[in-house]
Computed example of a mutant assay.
Amino acid sequence: MKYLSPLYPFLAGWALLLSTDALAYISLTNGLLQLLLFALVVCLPTWLTGRMSYVDIGWPWGLTLIGVLTFFLSDGNPIRVAIVSGAYVFAGSRMGLDALRMWRSGELKTELPRYAFQQRRWERAGKTNIKLSMQVEGILQGLGNASFLAMPALIIASNPSNSVSIFEVIGLLLWLMAFGLEALADHQKHAFLRAMKAAGETNKVCNAGLWKYSRHPNYFAEWMVWNALVVAAIPSWLALYEGERLMIWLLLGGGLLFASRVMYTTLVYYTGAVPAEYYSVKKRPEYKDYQQRTNRFFPGPRK
């Protein structure tokens, strides 16, 4: 039971989508294709190699799959469908192409630190069957794409209304701003690393640009990307009230909020800030001082 328990919330989220009148068919199609994708791209290579880093290929291409299915199977307003589908395809393909670059260059021949850290968690929790834990992890990621991470797209694309809500405008603007900040943070980090390499410096701490105000501004911006989708989904969720049972409708609203919670937990504790900093402290002598002076996740003034 302790090996399978992480799957239960995401199975419940998928079951919720399957129980709706408006989203059942597309949710079934998406869920089955996500599980097939992860079985072939993540679970099988993980079983053969003993490395879990293939999640970094499966997860973003799973987002792209959500966008494609939303575009072809949703019957909402065409402009609304195209925008949310494009957001998922663009974000997923951007990360997915980078993951394929890492795979081709051989970077996935060694386990990525965040997944090595995950094995430490399992050992502390008494999970000695690491191969089984890896398979559960791969399935969990696929179920995440089948459930809560698909909810904003599926709900938005179900809305046939031709009118535009202020929440949709705010959500779109917030998405563009957050994605721009994420790209800027990544650019500043890469520029810093190139400058340090040219200067012959190693294991230095990036504290330039956005990195002065947050130790992980890219993760914060990624979280805000998902919050933007949740905000944009509010009017479409309200529109579902007439066509869904009250309890299902209320649970869908909770599912949207839980999508934000899932991404926050992932980006801070699960595969994001906490595992990254575990290795940064060991590798970079100045990192402890950086931790004391700079907020971990939410941007703010230096201490």
Rank of each mutant, 00 (worst) to 15 (best):
A157G: 02
R120H: 14
A12N: 06
G142N: 02
D21P: 12
K2M: 14
P6E: 00
Q119M: 13
L251K: 11
L69R: 04
I248T: 15
G138V: 07
A232F: 02
I130Y: 08
M102N: 14
C206H: 01
A157W: 05
S158V: 00
L23P: 04
M102S: 14
L154Q: 10
N162V: 11
G254H: 07
R121P: 07
A228L: 09
A208V: 12
I57G: 00
G171L: 00
K303E: 04
V268H: 09
F258G: 01
L73P: 03
S85I: 01
Y241I: 14
T64C: 05
A99N: 03
L250N: 02
L65M: 09
E137N: 13
S158D: 00
I234R: 10
C43G: 12
G138Q: 06
E107I: 09
P275Q: 07
R194N: 15
Q135A: 14
Q188N: 09
S105G: 13
S236Y: 03
L174Y: 10
E201P: 09
P78H: 09
L240C: 05
V41A: 02
Y269H: 14
A198L: 15
P9Q: 08
M1E: 13
C43N: 15
E111M: 04
G58E: 08
G254W: 07
Y219N: 04
I166V: 15
D75C: 03
K2V: 11
E222S: 07
L132C: 08
G58F: 02
Y88M: 15
A228E: 09
L143V: 00
V268C: 12
M1R: 12
P235W: 01
L143Y: 00
E137R: 13
R215F: 06
L65C: 03
G209H: 00
A239Q: 12
E286Y: 05
P9D: 01
V231S: 02
R94C: 00
H216W: 08
L181E: 10
T128S: 14
L35G: 06
T49H: 10
P160D: 05
A276Q: 11
